[in-house]
Design a protein around this nucleic acid. Structure first.
Length: 389
DNA sequence: TCTGGGGTCCTAGGACCC
DNA sequence: TCTGGGGTCCTAGGACCC
């Protein structure tokens, strides 16, 4: 028996939530991402009414304002979106014991062998759409295939409120009917590269041998392309330990040049990352710093030490060292980012530095306490004195 | 029009070890 | 004396996704 996968994708999620919660927004262009005049903002989600004006995700907000000045602009209510997302994921769980959530607004459902329980795939898909609509007022688009990769692409083809079924056995034909830019995992850079080598369609790729593709694009990309255009691409979702990371970054309205402002920013980011590490009960030995200069060139430095980063204070000092190592004096900074890579669960055995262990442990406890306090009373802002301007 | 924030994965080169 | 080959870890940068 072939497997059956649904890929379910919410339509213009953030904008749709706003239109649902606020009926006066319905039928009008809604743009979530920022207010007109916000510096350095981008479009997070545009409603379909706004897309008709050419507005799309990741577009600079200023561009969206000029394309569609009469749109309703919103900064976004992410807590609310998470709440609705949880509600919808719960609905999915009623239909499949195995769901893989891909992001806040999409998930795979393994529907293999559920026919007897719920009925034929198209009927179940319609039931899911109905139930989501009923309980949240939102529409979803669904792709159905024996391959998760194909289902993912299928769900995007008939948005919004779409249902695209790729019958078992027709995966390759389906893939060969698509333009290159529909391939999931092929972005604009790779597409340019493909075109540079004379590949303009999935068929052009299909006609070449695996060794030739590997030769042209490297082992990995070559194999990916070969499998993808056949609809054979397997998506692996390892439950095994992966390299996770926790990061925070901030684009500043105006470039930073002053060292005091930079240090304050680094401390803010360190606190943010550190609290999240406490919250998720993980630690990390690797700290990475990202600097984006005013001309958008981006550099990074990272450092792995023998012992985990003990607390926000230590993270801040490590950040300062990395910063001094990399920063080109005099250049304006538009973004700073701090990231802990390769995080490990705190339940796994820890190696302590012999040195200053007790002191670190105390700071750790303090920060954990602050973390808990902040969770309990989010209205209280607990922060380093320096951050209180 | 002037480019968010949070992630993951891949590549290529260097260090180091046997 | 002018130098192998494999494995692993680390780093910087880049591509991609939502």
């Amino acid at each position: 028996m072939s497997p059956v996968f649904f890929h379910v994708d919410l339509d213009a999620f953030f904008a749709s939530v706003e239109q649902h919660d606020n009926p006066s927004y319905r039928g009008k262009p809604v743009i979530v991402g920022g207010l007109p005049g916000d510096r350095r903002a981008v479009v997070s989600t545009a409603s379909y009414e706004a897309r008709a004006y050419g507005v799309h995700s990741a577009m600079p907000l200023a561009t969206a304002v000029s394309l569609c000045p009469h749109a309703i602009f919103l900064r976004g209510r992410y807590k609310r979106y998470e709440e609705v997302s949880r509600q919808i994921m719960t609905i999915f769980q009623e239909f499949s014991p195995t769901i893989i959530q891909m992001s806040i607004d999409e998930a795979f459902l393994d529907m293999t062998g559920t026919e007897r329980l719920f009925g034929a795939s198209p009927d179940v898909a319609r039931k899911i759409k109905e139930k989501v609509k009923q309980e949240t007022g939102l529409t979803v688009s669904i792709g159905i295939s024996s391959s998760m990769y194909v289902a993912k692409i299928a769900s995007g083809l008939q948005k919004p409120d779409g249902l695209t079924i790729v019958p078992d056995g027709s995966e390759t034909n389906f893939m060969l009917s698509l333009p290159l830019n529909k391939l999931w995992g092929i972005g604009s850079k790779t597409q340019k590269k493909l075109e540079g080598s004379g590949f303009f369609s999935t068929k052009d790729i299909y006609l070449k041998s695996l060794p030739l593709l590997q030769n042209l694009f490297g082992n990995n990309t070559g194999t990916f392309l070969y499998e993808a255009v056949r609809g054979n691409k397997e998506l692996k979702f390892g439950t095994e330990a992966k390299n996770h990371s926790i990061s925070a970054e901030q684009t500043y309205d105006f470039d930073l040049t002053d060292r005091y402002a930079i240090d304050t920013a680094l401390m803010e980011l360190s606190l943010h990352v550190s609290y999240r590490m406490h919250h998720e009960n993980v630690r990390s030995n690797t700290l990475a710093l990202k600097i984006r200069y005013e001309d958008f060139t981006t550099v990074s430095v990272q450092e792995t030490s023998d012992f985990p980063i003990a607390n926000a204070d230590e993270m801040f000092h490590r950040c300062q060292r990395l910063f001094s190592k990399k920063y080109i004096q005099g250049r304006g900074i538009r973004l700073l980012g701090v990231s802990c890579e390769n995080t490990q669960s705190k339940t796994s055995p820890e190696q302590h530095g012999l040195f200053d262990f007790e002191n670190s442990a105390k700071k750790n406890k303090l920060e954990e306490a602050i973390c808990k306090l902040q969770e309990k009373h989010p209205e209280i802002s607990v922060s380093k004195a320096r951050l209180l301007r």
